[in-house]
């Protein structure tokens, strides 16, 4: 007899593929389901699913609930909520996972209300308690100064998960799995908001939240011009440039690029912290980076207590030769 779907993820598409966060949900969800001896399901809503159902199975799903309709083209909360509420209620999972993205953070709280359950948003770790079998959801609170572990008393146990908190698996195209098409129904009278358009703004490099490498400059940069150096540095990895609040307040950088408690939260593989002190306001936005490299004039700067590698000195003398060296490596064969 087939095991029950206990872990259900709500996926997002990026173009005609699963979004990276969705792959991570499947990887992490797979781990949770394995320790429960259960199956993993995923819901995919789209205008046209293409091969994403098969992709989801390759990444760890056992069942794919695939709803396709023209009205699912763009994310619209009341549309998605109606469709999802029905699917989730029908599947009846123990655990429901979403990614902490612009869509996930919009959708999850309202879905939780409709399912009359709680929600642990922006989790950085999920684990099954071996004694109770319940989901322990760990999330940063107080701007990352503390970690809270939550256990949900209602069902499903629902969490949104921060990007890069879970690990996606290597895709296995031979994995068995089942795609279950769902016919979405829509009650137009319940739609209260409408997507009008998406405006893509010209940003150099990739969006901050998705960047694998982020170079961030603080108050010590001294002016807007200095950020060109960071652009050059980040470019080597196709990364993005951020700034601290004092730098944004001084008008050197647009506030859309602010990293920190009241700005963006990023968790890249490499975070290059240049001429910034590492205030707790700032670290709330980048403390989860896999590797932090600090360049600062002040050897006592707080950032060095977070950094894996550090250079003490004036960035004006360190960045140019560093960038030069990286460029050389890119151009010529390694010596």
């Amino acid at each position: 007899m087939a095991k029950k779907i206990k872990v259900l993820a709500i996926g997002e598409l990026a173009g005609n593929q699963l979004s990276p966060g969705t792959r991570e949900l499947l990887g992490g969800g797979r781990d949770l389901a394995d320790s429960l001896g259960a199956r993993v399901g995923i819901v995919l809503l789209s205008e046209s699913a293409g091969k994403t159902g098969a992709e989801a199975i390759a990444y760890g799903a056992d069942e794919v609930y695939q709803a396709e309709a023209a009205f699912l083209k763009n994310y619209q909360p009341e549309v998605y909520l109606q469709v999802l509420e029905k699917i989730v209620k029908k599947v009846g999972p123990e655990i429901l996972l979403l990614a902490q993205t612009a869509t996930g953070r919009d959708l999850a709280p309202r879905l939780a209300c409709r399912l009359k359950t709680a929600l642990a948003p922006d989790c950085v770790a999920l684990a099954i308690d071996p004694d109770s079998g319940l989901l322990r959801m760990t999330r940063p609170v107080y701007g990352g100064r503390a970690l809270a572990v939550l256990v949900c008393k209602t069902r499903p146990q629902m969490a949104t998960v921060r990007f890069r908190a879970l690990k996606s698996r290597e895709p296995d195209p031979s994995r068995p799995g089942e795609i279950k098409p769902v016919t979405p129904e829509l009650d137009q009278s319940k739609i209260k908001s409408k997507f009008i358009e998406k405006v893509v703004e010209e940003v150099k490099g990739v969006p901050l939240e998705n960047a694998r490498v982020v170079a961030c400059g603080g108050r010590g940069m001294g002016g807007a011009e200095a950020y060109a150096l960071l652009e050059e540095l980040a470019q080597f990895w196709g990364g993005a440039v951020g700034a601290t609040r004092p730098a944004c307040d001084s008008g050197w950088v647009s506030s859309a690029r602010q990293i920190g408690l009241t700005g963006k939260i990023v968790s890249p593989n490499l975070y290059l912290a240049v001429a910034l002190s590492g205030s707790s306001q700032h670290m709330a936005g980048c403390g989860n980076s896999k590797m932090i490299v600090a360049i600062n004039k002040d050897p006592e700067a707080n950032i060095f207590s977070f950094a894996n590698y550090g250079v003490v000195g004036d960035y004006r003398r360190i960045l140019p030769p560093l960038i030069e060296r990286l460029k050389q490596v890119r151009k010529g064969p390694k010596d």
Binding site: K192, K194, I196, K198, V200, E201
Partner: peptide
Amino acid sequence: VAPDGYEVVEA
């Protein structure tokens, strides 16, 4: 706010 710009929504 969207990661690479913004969406216009009417409610």
